[in-house]
Simulated scan of single mutants.
Amino acid sequence: MNTTVPGTENHRVKTALRVIEIIEIFSREQKPLALSELARELNAPASSCLALVRTLLSLGYLYETSRRQGYYPTGRLLAMAQRITKADPILERLYPSLRELCAITGETVVLGKLTSLNTVLYLDVLPSENPIHYVAVAGEQKQIHANSLGKALFSALDEPAQQALLDKMTFTKRNDRTLVTRQQFLSNIQAGKEKGLFTNLGESMVDVGALAWPVTVSGGHFAISIAGPLYRIEANLQNHAQKLRVMCTFIEQH
C-alpha cells in the first residue's frame, strides 16, 4: 500500500533549499539576524522560518546570541565542511599541486568541472596572497562560453559530446568581449588548442583575466585555471601557461 502523501517530496525539497538559503544568507550578511530579518530575506512566512530555525537550533547549527540580536551559525557547520573537504578524493590528491601553482604564479588558482546542468562548477579556489586578486568561492557556477575553465573542459570532450553540449549552450553577452556565437566559440577553442592555453581575457568581467588547461584525474575530466587582474594575466600569459601545462602533466603522471 502506498502511503506517500501527495506533495511530500516537493515539500522536502523546498525545505532543503530553505536550509541552504539560510546558510547563504548568513554568509552574505555576516551578522546575527532576527527571525523577522530571516523571514524577509527568505521571502517566507515567519511561522515557516521559525520551524526551520528551531530545527537548526536543536541540531546545533544555530544559536541565539540574544533575544534582541537574533541567531547566528555555530562552528558545527564549519567543522563538518572541513571534514567533508578533507576526505574529498580529488581535492586531497590535487591540493598540494594547486597550492604550489598558486605560490609560483602569485595568482588565484581554481579547480573546475562541468556539471549536468551544463555549467562550470568551481570545486576549489585557492586565493592569491596579492592584495589585488581574483575573488571566488568553491561552489560557484559559471557559463561555459565566457570562462577559461569552461573552454578547457569543452576541449577535453569527444566530438559527439561537444555537439550535444553546444546544442544546450546559451551564449549570453556579458560585455563587448564575450563570445556570442557558436562559430566564435569554436574558433576560440581551436586557437586555444594551438596556443596551448584557453583564455578568458575580460569576456565575463572586463578587468579580470584567466587561463586554463584540462587535466584528467581518475578517469574524470577536470580543469585548472590561473586568474587575476587582466593586466597581470596578459603580461604573464605565456609564462603562466607553461607552468600550468607542466603542473597538469605532473598531476596526470603521478
Score class of each variant (00 low, 15 high):
L111C: 09
L123T: 11
L121K: 10
Q163I: 05
D124I: 05
I144N: 07
K168W: 04
V110N: 09
S116L: 09
Y122P: 00
L165V: 10
H133Y: 10
E129Q: 10
D158V: 11
T105A: 01
V125D: 08
G150S: 01
I144G: 10
Q143N: 14
M169F: 07
H145R: 06
S116D: 05
E159Y: 05
N130E: 10
Y134H: 15
S128T: 07
C102G: 13
A164W: 01
N147A: 03
L166K: 06
I144A: 02
I104N: 13
Q141S: 02
E129Y: 00
E159Q: 13
V109T: 15
V120Y: 07
S155K: 04
P127V: 05
A103P: 14
A161Q: 15
T170N: 10
S128Y: 06
L157I: 05
Q162S: 08
N147C: 02
L157T: 04
E140H: 07
I104R: 14
L111R: 04
L126P: 02
I132T: 13
A161E: 15
N130K: 14
A146Y: 00
H133G: 07
V120L: 06
L157D: 05
L126H: 13
L123M: 13
K168V: 05
L157K: 07
T170I: 12
I132L: 12
A146V: 02
L165F: 08
N130P: 01
Q162V: 05
P160R: 03
K151C: 00
A103R: 15
I104H: 13
D167P: 00
G139P: 11
P131I: 04
I144P: 04
Y134R: 05
A152G: 12
Y134Q: 10
P160A: 00
V125K: 07
G139S: 08
Q143T: 14
A138T: 01
Q162F: 02
K151R: 11
E140M: 01
P127N: 12
I132F: 12
T170E: 13
L121H: 09
L101C: 09
S116P: 07
Q163C: 00
S148Y: 02
E107R: 15
I132V: 12
G112A: 08
Y134E: 08
E140R: 03
G106S: 03
N118C: 13
P127G: 05
V125P: 12
P127T: 11
Q141L: 04
H145F: 01
K168L: 13
D167L: 12
L153W: 00
G112C: 05
L165M: 14
A146C: 06
L165Y: 04
A138Q: 06
P131G: 06
S155L: 04
T170P: 00
F154E: 04
Y122F: 06
L157R: 03
L165N: 10
D158K: 06
A156I: 04
K151Q: 02
G150R: 02
V125W: 10
C102R: 15
P127H: 08
S148F: 03
V135Q: 15
A156F: 09
D124R: 13
Q162M: 10
V137Y: 09
C102V: 14
D124Y: 06
G112M: 00
A138W: 04
E140V: 03
T170K: 09
M169Y: 06
